[in-house]
Design a protein around this nucleic acid. Structure first.
Lengths: 269, 269
DNA sequence: TACAAATGTATCGCTCAGCGATACTTTCCA
DNA sequence: TGGAAAGTATCGCTGAGCGATACATTTGTA
């Protein structure tokens, strides 16, 4: 049985979880597996479903769910039809956001950026093969989710991902391409390795990355990478708009410098 | 040893965690205790600090931290000076927000509200003695945190809390007052039971609740409760502004109907 | 309305996962 | 350059937690 769990996009990076590790506590992993069972569902889960999804027996799932419930990390659904994640989870969200120096420093920068850009602005952090959204400032008309902290997108086909890859070595880029489960999220998604490498080269030249309709129809997005002092890309700042309002060239001319500037401000540690 | 952990404000409600519960898995609780060790810190923690904060021995903390690290729920700090929460936490954040029907339905309502209100708009959910923020749409000038999902405030002294209490029985209100660790967060915080009850009565009459500078100097906030079909208050919608720009009466006249309308829209299930 | 399927809950004896103590190694200051 | 503190590793004992299973309760359907 493997404790490595599938995330929204791609698999964990250095996840050679050694099952014979003498320091590895099975029950801890099981707790997280149970919570992770909700990654792949849109509705409350039954105990059996949790057991199946997290690859453990009914009894184990029962105990773990029971314990997590006592502690507030799992709750009964509003109409008592199944289990859902509990509100206690948000306490840890807060801790993460507070203690991540990038996120902590990002708010004023993002708000300043948003003042000049009347479009959606996002901050995302790299985690292996994906970018996880840590903050979003929505645009005026957006009818979507206002806040989708925790949402993640693949690196290989997004503006933010390309901005990140632009600051990695060719070998690392190839490894990302190789290991990513590349699929056409929209008909415009670029999935062939050479196409991706070309976009990365483009990003290296421009200092920012562009993606058009590769994740969402009608959306144009550009991004600039945030770098650690040693040059490692930690994440990206994205600006996203609608192709019904923007022509790609105009969008870049107008917003690329602003995104770069904001990302630069967050890169100085 | 007690597994019940202190949250940001107040203690868990029905948290008589029976230690002799045969279904209770100690190691699962320990995992969450380790993660909760970060609740009370503003910086990375050492292993010893984690052990102390979570009330377990060095060895146990070592094993749990090790395991959580393998799984991405704990990370080494950027400059390798201690442990911090890991990005995997945000995956669960997303699950919580997605699977909470209130939050899932809230986005369009909040955005619509925000369109008419150029002030800060929040959605919070009740958890025992506190309200946990699940979404925030910042105002134009706000220089704070743009997103502070997971932040929590006490019920007894906030607009949202009063809006919630207005829909509880007197006995329940008294219990909240009694069990809350009431302290003067600002000099204006109302902490005496009768004062709080008066504000709750006021909220019942008005259909919305008001709080001035009780949590933050210079801030005026009003809120309306979101109700389950059976009338139980689940949370609140808040609108917050600055006293340097608003006179309380004008603020209420202008925004109370909008907050009520939005809360009403989310109350219809 | 009655039956079957599924869901949540409870019990129990066996055993190995995980406990605590402790020792080793490295890093960081003073 | 010493000493304190941090992270890592090892080990034998034992009770925490394992899986199997039975029970209770709800749900959907014929």
């Amino acid at each position: 049985m493997s404790y490595v769990q599938r995330a929204e996009y791609g698999v964990r990076p250095a996840s050679h979880v050694d099952e014979d590790d003498p320091l590895f506590v099975q029950a801890v992993a099981r707790a997280m597996q149970v919570l992770s069972a909700f990654h792949d569902t849109g509705r409350p889960l039954s105990l059996n479903e949790i057991a199946t999804a997290s690859g453990m027996g009914r009894s184990a799932a029962q105990r773990v769910v029971h314990t997590l419930r006592q502690l507030g990390y799992v709750e009964r659904d509003a109409d008592d039809r199944g289990f859902v994640p509990g509100i206690r989870i948000l306490d840890h969200t807060r801790d993460y956001l507070r203690l991540n120096p990038l996120v902590a420093r990002a708010s004023p920068v993002l708000l300043e950026l948003r003042r000049n850009v009347r479009e959606r602005v996002d901050l995302s952090l790299r985690d292996g093969l994906r970018l996880v959204y840590a903050a979003r400032l929505q645009s005026k008309r957006e009818t979507f989710f206002a806040t989708l902290v925790g949402q993640s997108v693949p690196i290989y086909c997004t503006s933010g991902g390309r901005a990140v890859m632009a600051h990695l070595s060719d070998a690392e880029v190839d490894e990302i391409i190789e290991r990513s489960e590349r699929r056409e999220i929209t008909p415009k998604t670029i999935t062939d390795p050479e196409g991706i490498r070309a976009k990365v080269r483009e990003a290296r030249q421009n200092g920012y990355a562009l993606a058009m309709e590769e994740v969402l129809q009608g959306e144009v997005a550009l991004a600039a990478a945030i770098l650690a002092p040693d040059g490692t890309p930690l994440g990206a700042i994205h600006i996203a708009g609608s192709l019904s309002e923007w022509e790609p060239e105009g969008f870049c001319r107008r917003f690329a410098p602003l995104a770069s500037e904001a990302a630069g401000a967050l890169s100085r540690f």
